[in-house]
C-alpha cells in the first residue's frame, strides 16, 4: 500500500468517524442525564434530513436557512416526543421507557413512509460542500472538512454547557436524583426538556451532515446511523461525551481500515462494528472512557 493510498483511507476513516462521533454525542448526552437510551435518536436524523431537503427543494430557501429551520423543528419534535412518550413513564421501570423509545422510533419511520413516500430522494448538496480538493494525490470532498470541525465545536460547547453553566449544573443534579434536585428548587421538567432539545439538535446537525455526505434520503435511513452511533457511544463509555467522540472515531477508522487491509472481509463491515460492541461489553462494560457506576443507596 502506498503512502498516498494509506492517507486517502485515513482521511476517509476520519471523515466517517467524525460523522459517527457527531451523532454519538447526542445519544450519549441524553443517556448521561436521563439514563434513557433514546432509540428514536436515529429517526430524528431522518426527520431533520427530510426537513432540510424540503426546505431547499420545495420552499426554495437558501441552504443555511433551511438547515437552521431543520435543527429548530427537530428540537421541537424531540421535546414533544419526550413530553408525550417518556414523561408519563418517568416513574415506571426503565425497561418500559426503553420500549416506549423503540415505539417512537417505529412511529417516526412509518410516519416518514406515509408523509415522504418510500422512494429514495436525492439531497441537493450545496457547492461549498460538494467541491473536491486535491492535496498531493489525496482527494477530499468539501463536506469532509466541515464535519470534524463542527463535531469539535459542538463537543466544546457541550462540555462547557454541562460543566460550566447553571443549566449544566442542574442537568448533572437531575442525572443524580430527580426528587432531590426538585427539592433543591430545580425545575426538573424544564431541565429534561432542555436536555432533549439539545440532544435532538445534535441529532439534526448529524442528520444534515450525514445527508451532505451521503445524499440519499429514505424514511429508514436513521436506522443504521442510529445503531452505529449507539455502538460508538457504548464503546466510548455511554454517558461520557468525550468518550462518544473517541468511540465514533474508533468505529469509523476501524470500518474503513478493515476493508482497506482485508478486502476479502469487505462484506463483513457491519459485523466488525457489532463484534467491537460485544468485545467492549465483555471486557470493559463501562466503555473506554466510561465513568464508574455509582450505585444509589
Amino acid at each position: 500500500m502506498t503512502l498516498e493510498l494509506f492517507l486517502q483511507h485515513l482521511t476517509n476513516g476520519i471523515s466517517l468517524g467524525s460523522l459517527y462521533a457527531l451523532i454519538a454525542i447526542g445519544y450519549t448526552m441524553v443517556y448521561g442525564i436521563l439514563r434513557l437510551i433514546n432509540f428514536a435518536h436515529g429517526d430524528l436524523i431522518m426527520v431533520a434530513a427530510y426537513i432540510a431537503f424540503y426546505g431547499v427543494g420545495i420552499f426554495a430557501l437558501p441552504w443555511y436557512l433551511s438547515f437552521f429551520i431543520a435543527v429548530l423543528l427537530s428540537m421541537t419534535l424531540g421535546i414533544i416526543t419526550e413530553k408525550a412518550a417518556y414523561k408519563p413513564l418517568r416513574n415506571s421501570p426503565r425497561i418500559t421507557i426503553l420500549i416506549s423509545a423503540i415505539g417512537v422510533s417505529f412511529l417516526l419511520q412509518n410516519l416518514g413512509i406515509v408523509l415522504f413516500g418510500g422512494r429514495p430522494k436525492a439531497f441537493q448538496v450545496p457547492e461549498i460542500f460538494a467541491k473536491v480538493y486535491n492535496f498531493g494525490g489525496v482527494n477530499i470532498v468539501g463536506v469532509t472538512f466541515f464535519i470534524p470541525v463542527i463535531t469539535v465545536i459542538l463537543l466544546i460547547l457541550l462540555v462547557y454547557l454541562i460543566n460550566f453553566t447553571k443549566a449544566g449544573m442542574a442537568m448533572r443534579a437531575v442525572a443524580k436524583d430527580y426528587d432531590t434536585s426538585s427539592l433543591m428548587g430545580i425545575d426538573v421538567n424544564r431541565i429534561i426538556s432542555l436536555t432533549f432539545g439539545v440532544g435532538s439538535a445534535l441529532a439534526a446537525v448529524g442528520g444534515i451532515m450525514w445527508s451532505l455526505k451521503f445524499p440519499q434520503l429514505i424514511p429508514t435511513m436513521g436506522l443504521m446511523p442510529g445503531l452505529k452511533c449507539f455502538i460508538a457511544a457504548v464503546v466510548g463509555g455511554i454517558g461520557n461525551v468525550t468518550g462518544a467522540v473517541v468511540g465514533g472515531f474508533l468505529l469509523g477508522l476501524g470500518e474503513i481500515l478493515l476493508v482497506a487491509f482485508f478486502p476479502d472481509l469487505s462484506g463483513y463491515r457491519d459485523a466488525f462494528s457489532f463484534i467491537l460492541l460485544i468485545i467492549i461489553l465483555l471486557v470493559k462494560p463501562t466503555g473506554i472512557m466510561g465513568e464508574k457506576i455509582a450505585e444509589k443507596v
Binding site: 500500500m1 493510498l5 486517502q8 483511507h9 476517509n12 466517517l16 455526505k213 451521503f214 440519499q216 443504521m224 470500518e255 474503513i256 481500515l257 478493515l258 476493508v259 482497506a260 478486502p263 469487505s266 462484506g267 463491515r269 457491519d270
Partner: peptide
C-alpha cells in the same frame, strides 16, 4: 483483479473503491 463486497443499505464505499482502483 479485485473483488470487493458491500451490504444493501451501505452508504460509505470509499475503502471498497480504493481497493478496486488500486
Amino acid at each position: 483483479v479485485a473483488n470487493v463486497d458491500y451490504q444493501t443499505g451501505d452508504q460509505e464505499f470509499s475503502a471498497q473503491i480504493q481497493t478496486a482502483a488500486q
